[in-house]
Design a protein around this nucleic acid. Structure first.
Length: 531
DNA sequence: AGCCTTTGACCAGCG
DNA sequence: TCGCTGGTCAAAGGC
């Protein structure tokens, strides 16, 4: 696991939108289906069964080497050409790019694409890397100048992804979720196979939009995101414990970073320090560990059901917001190990976040889904904007995770408003969009179509039409942009990233948004930010 | 005592 | 209309 981080991305829709100028060129490249994915999980393939389509870009970070396989990125998509950019990129960057699967057509069902990033590679670097350049050939630009980092790719140090900063505010959107273990290697693989299965459009459209998700823990793969605060760690401890073992120490040293994070979030009920923690502290602990604890989204959730969904390998848990007047629900699929493989939010919160932790202690039972799941933070949309005020978030770091998930406003540009954070009353209230985190990717479901937040890249606006998935296809979206635009975008991104190293961003020119992909340990985070 | 999780049963939508 | 599947309800039990 150590070796590389993988990013898996899924696209919801294929729309080749022009939007994605910034989208990584790799997206465009066709990649052969990735065997890893299946290996990992066995993936489902696309079954889309349940109705949820999993399109969306998800990024999974894992260590490639697991299982002794060479790390090769895969993208779920099957694409035709294999040789491609990915290879070139890999050669150049030092890491290979997985294939992306586009939700759309051909890809459907394919596994989720994975992008592999060598350890040590930071998101920022990734961003800078050719992969994210529309131009496949993109090289480090003066703006970025970080390509050097690529050199590190092989380090044991895993790429470090830092948690997104909270500050992004409402706009920022993050989700994370991929557990390598579960996702990439395991669940995800399976799901990956599901891949695109979920389309926002399909299923739950009811909901308004929202949010953010948080991190998944994962353990296995290296977590790129090293920085999780302890709170997170704590929360994730259980998982971590489990996973921890699974995981090898090889992960990122990010753990150290995590240390930085520090504080316990309130949220997590308590994380007894476990060996894991201690290890983490020691630094042995893979970064993944850190990720484990996802922050809460700040909202209180009550589980009202659990069911084994037919096409899903793991049981799906149903949660409702405990706020009296709030009808927000979320569905969380979690691997047996506790890793969240998918999170789908429905509805928007019509209330501010509850004060942090108020509840937890009590019955003990309460679990935020996150805690439980460890992952998911629902995005509370609000958080960013305002939720915090509520204090739901414990510490800054915690927030950062959370916030990362900011709402995506306007990210639909078109008219869907899907985005505002759910929590914000009034804003999105009815818009319904829900966000799903799918194997690390979050997506929104909206009545109109889903938007896949997850991939920021993909931003699909409406199900129907607007999907602009970042189409990764070279030809399309990304390609469309002119270099100048790209440069501009790149600059923006660069700036953004500089500010938030942990995010990987892509800028959508049309939408004027930046998508952030946050690395998480095993999972990824992504966010959309407006410029 | 309150809140939450668990879990089997029920209901609704869809083919 | 039937069967399947996903989503929700509600009783029981735990913390």
């Amino acid at each position: 696991m150590d070796g590389h981080t993988h990013l898996a991305m899924e696209w919801k829709d294929q729309s080749p939108g022009p939007d994605c100028s910034m989208l990584p060129s790799f997206l465009t490249d066709p990649f052969p289906a990735d065997p890893l994915v299946e290996d990992c999980d066995g993936g489902n393939d696309g079954s889309e069964g349940g109705g949820f389509e999993r399109h969306g870009l998800s990024v999974a970070v894992g260590s490639p080497q697991e299982e002794g396989k060479p790390v090769t990125p895969h993208f779920g998509q099957r694409s035709s050409s294999s040789s491609s950019l990915s290879e070139r990129m890999q050669a150049r960057a030092g890491f290979s790019v997985a294939k992306l699967s586009m939700p759309g057509s051909e890809y459907s069902g394919a596994q989720s694409p994975y992008l592999t990033i060598p350890p040590g590679l930071s998101p920022a670097s990734l961003l800078e890397s050719p992969v994210f350049l529309s131009n496949a050939m993109g090289q480090s630009s003066p703006t970025t100048g970080k390509l050097l980092m690529l050199g590190d790719t092989n380090n044991n140090n895993n790429a470090r992804l830092e948690p997104p900063s909270v500050e992004d505010g409402p706009r920022a959107f993050s989700f994370k979720a991929l557990d390598l273990k579960s996702s990439q290697y395991t669940a995800e693989g399976k799901k990956g196979s599901l891949p695109n299965s979920q389309h926002p459009s399909a299923p739950s459209r009811d909901v308004p939009v929202k949010t953010e998700t948080n991190i998944q823990t994962t353990t296995q793969g290296a977590n790129p995101l090293g920085h999780l605060n302890q709170a997170q760690l704590n929360n994730g401890q259980d998982l971590m414990k489990r996973s921890y073992h699974d995981c090898n120490n090889k992960r990122n040293r990010l753990a150290a970073d995590s240390a930085t994070a520090g504080g316990d979030n309130n949220a997590s009920p308590t994380p007894p320090a476990t060996a894991v923690d201690s290890e983490a502290a020691k630094g042995d602990y893979p970064a993944a560990v850190a990720t484990a604890a996802p922050a809460e989204d700040g909202y209180s959730w009550r589980k009202y059901g659990q069911k084994q969904v037919k096409h899903s390998e793991y049981p799906r848990s149903y949660y409702k917001c405990t706020h009296p007047s709030c009808q927000v629900k979320k569905k969380v699929e979690r691997s047996h190990e506790g890793h969240v493989t998918e999170i789908i939010y429905k509805g928007t919160h019509n209330h501010p976040r509850p004060a942090a932790q108020s509840r937890r202690p009590a019955g003990g039972a309460q679990v935020h889904p996150f805690n439980d799941a460890q992952m998911d933070a629902p995005a509370d949309n609000n958080n960013n904007g305002y939720g915090n005020a509520g204090g739901s978030q414990p510490n800054a770091e915690a927030r950062s995770l959370w916030h990362a998930g900011v709402a995506v406003q306007d990210w639909r540009g078109d008219g869907l408003e899907a985005t505002s954070p759910p929590s914000v009353p009034g804003e999105l209230c009815d818009s319904s969009a829900s966000m799903q985190v799918h194997d690390g990717a979050a997506r929104f479901e909206s009545p109109e179509g889903g938007v896949d937040v997850t991939s920021a890249v993909s931003d699909e606006v409406d199900g129907d039409d607007r999907v602009a998935h970042g189409s990764m296809s070279q030809g399309q979206g990304a390609a469309d942009t002119t270099e100048g635009d790209e440069l501009e975008s790149k600059r923006r991104l660069h700036n953004l990233i500089s500010a938030r190293p942990h995010h990987i961003c892509s800028f959508h020119q049309e939408r004027k948004m930046c998508v952030l992909i946050l690395g998480g340990r095993m999972f990824q985070e992504a966010g959309v930010v407006r410029h």
